[in-house]
Simulated assay, not measured.
Amino acid sequence: MANAYIICTTPRSGSTLLCRMLRTTGIAGAPASLFFGTSLAEWRRRMALAPSDASSTVQLRDIMAAAHALGKGDTAVFALRQQWHSFAFLQAQLALLFPAAQTDLVRLTSVFGPLRFIYLTRADKVSQAVSYLLAQQTGLWHRHADGTELERTAAPQLPTYSYEAIAAAVAKLTEWDQNWQAWFNMQGVAPFTVTYETLADAPQAQIRDILEQLNLPTQVADSVEPDVARIDDPRSREWVERFRRDGGVAP
């Protein structure tokens, strides 16, 4: 049985669906973006810890203890979702906490114990980039399976198509994926890879495969239903097709 795992990913790769389904199994921890952001104060707010004037080292010990408890939920397994764009700050803080440790992997295991890594990626980078930009522009990031809003970060507004913005997002998301792959290689980590496409097509099968990788009972996956809708509306499809035409690529 796995004691801990980290889902390593980038935005709009299906991580919210994956995390919610794994949490619903009741045996695979409570994966969430506990280390989102680039300040200890933000981490403390996310973990419902009171503000503190203590030293960074003291705060980090409190934060890591709280994260360990939150990531386990009511299970014996710690789980974490980590986006690349906030990983550098986590690396830097762990280096402060464990100055004698030689690698990121040693520092992570010093906090959370032996770790498995799940690499969640999306093959269609244009669709991922369009989804990312639409979420940023409209403020709507996720819907429940019944269509009601699950996560909104800003008031509704009409989005504006931009070839340049989509191209920049494709480049950024591609770079973040490459950074994860380089980090795995540097740390000697062999992650279990899941793609957005396979997760969207067969979510229960993917949960079953992950539970098997974690040496957890797989049969619970059959009773876990997806509760996050796939945001694939006419506008997003139109933007993908338009971007490919503008770039001289067949839809």
Score class of each variant (00 low, 15 high):
residue 249 V to R: 05
residue 101 A to P: 05
residue 203 P to T: 00
residue 237 R to E: 10
residue 183 W to P: 00
residue 115 L to F: 13
residue 112 F to C: 07
residue 106 V to D: 09
residue 43 W to L: 14
residue 59 Q to L: 08
residue 225 E to S: 00
residue 40 L to R: 04
residue 174 T to L: 01
residue 28 A to G: 08
residue 60 L to R: 05
residue 178 Q to E: 03
residue 30 A to V: 14
residue 247 G to Y: 09
residue 198 T to L: 08
residue 243 F to A: 03
residue 22 L to G: 07
residue 12 R to W: 07
residue 217 P to Y: 15
residue 223 S to W: 10
residue 42 E to S: 07
residue 57 T to G: 04
residue 107 R to V: 01
residue 118 I to D: 12
residue 113 G to S: 00
residue 243 F to I: 02
residue 129 A to R: 02
residue 202 A to N: 14
residue 67 A to K: 06
residue 61 R to E: 14
residue 215 N to K: 08
residue 235 R to Y: 14
residue 141 W to L: 11
residue 34 L to E: 04
residue 54 A to N: 13
residue 35 F to I: 00
residue 186 M to Q: 15
residue 172 K to Q: 15
residue 84 W to Q: 15
residue 146 D to L: 10
residue 31 P to H: 06
residue 67 A to V: 03
residue 241 E to K: 10
residue 52 S to P: 02
residue 170 V to D: 05
residue 115 L to N: 03
residue 194 V to F: 02
residue 156 P to S: 13
residue 218 T to M: 08
residue 85 H to R: 12
residue 121 T to S: 09
residue 231 I to D: 12
residue 159 P to V: 08
residue 110 S to W: 05
residue 199 L to M: 01
residue 40 L to T: 11
residue 35 F to Y: 06
residue 28 A to W: 15
residue 171 A to P: 12
residue 21 M to C: 02
residue 11 P to M: 01
residue 152 R to G: 05
residue 120 L to S: 09
residue 13 S to C: 11
residue 104 D to S: 08
residue 172 K to D: 11
residue 97 L to T: 00
residue 82 Q to A: 06
residue 158 L to R: 14
residue 40 L to Q: 11
residue 21 M to N: 00
residue 155 A to S: 10
residue 208 R to N: 01
residue 143 R to S: 11
residue 111 V to G: 05
residue 193 T to D: 08
residue 209 D to E: 03
residue 247 G to L: 11
residue 123 A to E: 15
residue 22 L to Q: 09
residue 48 A to Q: 10
residue 188 G to Y: 11
residue 207 I to A: 00
residue 216 L to F: 06
residue 245 R to W: 14
residue 182 A to R: 09
residue 179 N to K: 13
residue 117 F to P: 02
residue 148 T to W: 02
residue 155 A to T: 13
residue 110 S to R: 15
residue 96 L to N: 10
residue 210 I to Y: 03
residue 244 R to W: 15
residue 130 V to K: 00
residue 226 P to R: 01
residue 188 G to I: 04
residue 15 S to Q: 01
residue 162 S to K: 01
residue 76 A to S: 08
residue 43 W to C: 04
residue 196 Y to K: 03
residue 188 G to S: 08
residue 162 S to T: 02
residue 67 A to I: 04
residue 86 S to L: 02
residue 121 T to C: 09
residue 176 W to M: 15
residue 250 A to Y: 12
residue 140 L to T: 12
residue 168 A to Q: 14
residue 189 V to Q: 01
residue 86 S to A: 02
residue 135 A to F: 13
residue 158 L to Y: 14
residue 92 A to R: 11
residue 83 Q to V: 07
residue 248 G to H: 14
residue 195 T to K: 04
residue 122 R to N: 09
residue 70 L to R: 12
residue 247 G to A: 14
residue 51 P to H: 07
residue 97 L to N: 04
residue 47 M to Q: 06
residue 3 N to T: 14
residue 227 D to L: 07
residue 84 W to C: 04
residue 27 I to L: 13
residue 217 P to M: 13
residue 156 P to L: 12
